[in-house]
């Protein structure tokens, strides 16, 4: 009897979770399509996407994140150099550390770390803002004024993310390479000039663009997950908290999975 109840509860829960997953996926795709619709055709309906909210989002997502991005990227570059030199020393191949740093920073670490950072910093802020607006009926107010919430809220954030995430990733590439260079020059007695020359020699344009493409995908993931969770808030302040946490956890999970899939296809 108890087994039956447990099985029924489990099946019901699984069914509900699956249904919610499919629903959210469909909603995300609709949101993605609609946000680009407003960007491209909004003017036709006399609801063009305006620049000031895009710039405001770019400030928040990108410019204000620069100090923390600098610290993180520099630390990651140094960490890779420390690990690389220590590991390669066992083979007597420390000089190859430049190649290791250059490739892992541009292809993997910069986009991934920036993606995770922005998901935690700006994704959570977006989900909390939208959730609060939802419970205060501000989203309804937008709709009854005749302003599409997608055009007014989602599109500016989407555009800002798509511009700022690759920009931050490229900036992080440079800072992380510098971090690696500083440690390498101290440890191996290599000049920064020689490190830079060697980095330019081993790096191909594709290595950098691979990271930038990834960051574009992460930008879409963060924006959609944040808005889907924000818009779905129903249960007061507690709901806002839950939606914020959920959006950060889901964004990071999807980013890491997408990164793995992306890396597989790009290296084959």
């Amino acid at each position: 009897m108890i087994d039956k109840i447990v099985l029924r509860t489990f099946t019901e829960k699984l069914g509900k979770t699956t249904l919610r997953g499919v629903e959210e996926l469909g909603y995300s795709i609709a949101l993605l399509v609609e946000s680009f619709y407003w960007l491209l055709f909004g003017f036709r309906r006399r609801q063009a996407v305006k620049l000031p909210p895009i710039f405001a989002q770019m400030m928040h997502i990108g410019i204000q994140a620069l100090p923390i991005v600098t610290i993180l990227a520099f630390a990651i570059g140094m960490m890779l150099a420390i690990q690389g030199i220590a590991t390669l020393k066992t083979f007597g191949a420390e000089s190859q550390v430049v190649l290791g740093i250059a490739l892992s920073v541009t292809r993997e670490f910069s986009p991934l770390i920036i993606g995770i950072l922005v998901a935690g910093r700006s994704g959570s802020a977006l989900a909390a803002r939208i959730g609060t607006m939802q419970i205060a009926q501000e989203i309804d107010a937008l709709r009854v004024i005749g302003i599409s919430p997608v055009r007014y809220l989602v599109t500016p954030a989407m555009v800002a993310m798509l511009i700022m995430l690759p920009s931050l990733t490229f900036f992080a590439d440079l800072v992380a390479l510098l971090g690696g260079g500083v440690y390498s020059s101290l440890e191996l007695g290599m000049s920064l000039q020689a490190y830079a020359d060697r980095t330019i020699e081993v790096l191909k344009v594709e290595d950098i663009t691979q990271g930038l493409y990834k960051s574009l995908v992460f930008a879409v993931i963060i924006t959609l997950v944040s808005f889907v969770n924000g818009f779905s808030v129903t249960a007061g302040a507690e709901g806002v908290g839950k939606a914020t946490t959920r959006s950060v956890v889901l964004s990071i999970t999807y980013i890491i999975i997408a990164d793995m899939v992306f890396t597989f296809f790009l290296t084959h």
Binding site: A136, Q137, D140, V144
Partner: peptide, 12 residues
């Protein structure tokens, strides 16, 4: 159409 919501729904 104009609407006045229960809590005002002013944009904070």
């Amino acid at each position: 159409m104009g609407v006045s919501f229960q809590g005002g729904a002013l944009f904070n």
